[in-house]
Design a binder for these strands. Structure first.
Lengths: 151, 151
DNA sequence: AGAATATAAGACACTCAGCTCTGAATTAAA
DNA sequence: TTTAATTCAGAGCTGAGTGTCTTATATTCT
């Protein structure tokens, strides 16, 4: 697993919010989201709290409350979500887990892994929530867990 | 973490054995290896047992015993070690952890991730223990944990 | 308008599972 | 008899997921 479960759920939820906000303004209910994405409500809440405190989302309590994107969906990238939840270490860690591995004292696969990591970074950076959400609708892509995984 | 700890330790130990067997014939003691690589003896033992039962190593009990490569160091790739310990799933899993993700019903980052995974596979496949061990000596590369991490 | 109520986020402590790591007893070879 | 791998049982830790209670706010009712 490159990304933590929390991080993948965070990405899926962000895309969900982006799709909803393209359809109608206002806040998206976490309860509704957890049902549709088949993600545990409390766990999802915790993840969205992190995204809120990272400044990617805004939240509102009470009836008609929920969460919404703070900036325009075209202004937020998947990378932003990954960094908010898993942090930069995903793109820094040595493949062999060697603590001192770096350009000065590389491990045997350092250069190759650095390249691959960089590609991953670019991939995430190049994808905004807006574009990706649109692509999901157009191509009918998978982006929720199957019911099998519901709790 | 792309690879499990056990897997990275397995790679490091395999490279250690390849280096030793380039210098002298015979078995490499697990005890000695665990000291030099700063990996817990019992944990390392378990990992090497997996490599032995996977047919990559042979083991011998008693004095002068230990483990040795079953085939020539140039005939074993890092990929072999990864497959023996973490299995093929490393190179199959969806980046977003979506169970049904595949070419028919891809997730939003499916294609990009498939490419990156493939590169990683090729990288591991192209590196034999022999070459890599030689490179370590020539370039004085890092391949053991620092003492700080000793147990 | 003001109070009551329902809804939903937020905080926190907890369980559970899987991976990591340890210890003690066993077995085989020199 | 010593040395070193093997086996197995289980402890410890971390990340994943759950339950309960608290806090905030929009809506509804008087």
């Amino acid at each position: 697993m490159v990304l933590s479960k929390a991080c993948t759920y965070g990405i899926l939820a962000s895309l969900f919010i982006a799709r909803e906000s393209a359809k109608s303004k206002g806040y998206v209910s976490i309860g509704k989201m957890s049902k549709e994405l088949h993600i545990s409500f409390h766990f999802l809440t915790k993840i969205l709290q992190e995204l809120t405190s990272a400044g990617l989302l805004v939240s509102m309590k009470g009836p008609k409350g929920g969460v919404a994107l703070k900036r325009d969906a075209g202004e937020i990238t998947i990378l932003d979500v990954v960094l908010a939840i898993d942090g930069i270490k995903v793109f820094r860690e040595c493949l062999l887990g060697l603590p001192g591995c770096g350009d000065e004292k590389p491990c045997p696969v350092h250069d190759e892994w650095a390249e691959i990591r960089e590609e991953l970074y670019q991939t995430f950076q190049s994808k905004t929530l807006g574009e990706t959400a649109q692509k999901i609708d157009e191509l009918n892509l998978r982006f929720a867990l199957p019911e099998l995984y519901e709790r």
